[in-house]
Design a protein around this nucleic acid. Structure first.
Lengths: 147, 147
DNA sequence: ATCGTTGCAAACGGTTTGCAATTCG
DNA sequence: CGAATTGCAAACCGTTTGCAACGAT
């Protein structure tokens, strides 16, 4: 049985008495199609091109809605700005972020997760989520001949 | 031979042709004495109480100077804001951050570091630094009878 | 005296909010 | 119809910056 994000989203909306609007659909679709992490501004720029009526505020509001509902994740880029990715059928993973070109490479390690669990337990800390970001230079930006 | 942060800082300053000012000393001292991670605003508030002449801009400027020189570290709190800690004679460590009271608990794991190295190597990624933050509730805030 | 540094206040940039108009259910 | 949602523009808030006065060397 294939998961259909749009359907799931609609269900969530109606279950909360919220409405399914064109803007919310556009934004979810954009996020689902995006191959990389997108910033609210990129999102606004791209969707607004096709639908000039869309406002910036709606992008932010919807992104929060998606994040709160567990449909999206946000990461912090090196400059502190946020970028989002959807969470449909994607296993948990963390990120390596290139400080030069902002490329994002995903990684995950069951061992790290296990150690984390152990560490939090030792400190009687109840983990909710975590952020493990490695900053550096990607293959391309670190290659010789580029300082 | 004991390390004397203030001396080291003075050396760095003069080696760069920068000046050793009262404000810079106050800020470094504050950071050294702080037992927890401090935000620029806390810093400004506290130091400004004793020295009303100190301005907010100087706090930010000095914090950047300290970070760039490797004397301080910054972390992002759950709300995206920054907080700083000094780096004198402190081994590398990461953080668990309480989403309720913003308490910060430090942790470190040689195993995690090792795995990270291996992962970056696999992706031909040249790491510069990383941020590993676990968000959740500290012992106190997670205890029953609260929420 | 020189040039880095400071405080101030204005500018910034990303995000949020108040509100009247609009749209979904 | 009535409540939720939207776009707009103004408000926010942490941070940065331009500038004239100041201060360390």
């Amino acid at each position: 049985m294939k998961i259909e994000p749009q359907k799931v989203f609609q269900q969530l909306l109606s279950s909360k008495g919220l409405k399914c609007t064109k803007q919310r659909e556009e934004i979810l679709d954009y996020l689902l199609k995006a191959r990389k992490h997108v910033t609210p501004e990129e999102m606004y720029r791209d969707i607004n091109r096709k639908d000039p009526a869309l406002g910036r505020a709606t992008v932010f509001r919807t992104l929060h809605l998606l994040e709160d509902s567990g449909f999206a994740n946000s990461i912090h880029l090196a400059n502190g700005r946020q970028a989002y990715e959807h969470k449909f059928a994607r296993p948990h993973h963390d990120h390596m972020i290139c400080v030069e070109c902002s490329a994002v490479i995903e990684f995950s390690s069951a061992t790290i997760e296990r150690i984390q669990e152990q560490i939090t337990k030792e400190h009687t800390f109840s983990p909710l989520w975590h952020r493990h970001e490695i900053f550096g230079r990607c293959k391309k930006c670190a290659s010789p001949g580029r300082n």
